[in-house]
Amino acid sequence: MSNRLINILVPAVSVVLGLLVGALIMLFTGYDPIEGYAALWNGIFGDIYAIGETIRQITPYILAGLAVAFAFRTGLFNIGVEGQLIVGWFAAAWVGVAFTDLPAFIHLPLAVLAAAVAGAFWGFIPGLLKAKLKVHEVIVTIMMNYIALFVTNALIRYVSDGGDNTGRIAESASLGSPFLQGLTDFSRLHYGILIALAMVFVMWFILEKTKTGFELKAVGFNQNASEYAGMNVSRNIILSMVIAGAFAGLAGAMEALGTFQYANVKGGFTGIGFDGIAVALLGANTPLGVVFGATLFGALQYGSLNMPNEAGVPVEIVSIVIAIIIFFVASGYVLRLFLEKISSKKEAK
């Protein structure tokens, strides 16, 4: 079997297997799998509203996936996307609320930039600690998540005089567009998807077309060799975390300026940052792969909301089914090994 065929076959077979096992689970628990999957399909592609909302859901996943993937290419495991996203969310919302009479062409970029800078700063700290003191970034980033969550909660209370919400951002900072909303029957689709896709290109460009990108990747492959080759390893580690943090901060801006248009006090994490890890790994840490991973994740996540709505399948069963589909897609590697073994046997004969 040619490599190309395997590359196409593996994900396809994985998805089918995932769907099959998911169907069995619905069958065993007494729900109609066909009805359930029809509801899932309708939830994703059913009408123009669903499509708009699905794209909206995919947007932050792309950026969160990029944030994990980018750091991973430099050999860093960025578990702190969640925290970087939350500070980005707050920063964008605050800029959106605090300045009221700026024109949109200044206000919106400023709010987006604020989110990126806040996220970058949240990535800079673990990067610095890793580069200078060899503190493992996994520990620092996880802890920074909690710091981000509760610091932003306190800041939201502070700026809203003890309330739980920053209030709605000014229209001039909003990524939402009446045009896109009209096109998709009032979904919350916003221009953020363009920013997300632009960032996919930016990541590809940095990694593949610049000297910096080459150095970042080299550090990821082998730190000692890179150092021997005269590269500044510390600088590259910090830079990688800063860029990854900026991506994550932008994911927060999508929520602040697009989906929600405000920042509110949170009782727990959003989960987008953690899902970003899976998105990046599903996409093999490549920019284009992340887009596919995010599409799968976002579509399933959003479409699954329709399963209790249309087919009456309880939320708990839906979560299991979705997890199984993703599980099978992620274990495509096992399938690949299996296929390769078969084809090598055939060749031997």
Binding site: G271, L305, N306, P308, V315
Partner: peptide, 24 residues
């Protein structure tokens, strides 16, 4: 319970409120 009677939808995250309300 069901269409034309009474029903509920659960939200798993803050982002789901709009969708669920809209669906109903």
């Amino acid at each position: 319970q069901g269409d034309g009677g009474y029903d509920y939808l659960q939200s798993a995250s803050d982002a789901d409120y709009v969708t669920n309300l809209n669906n109903l």
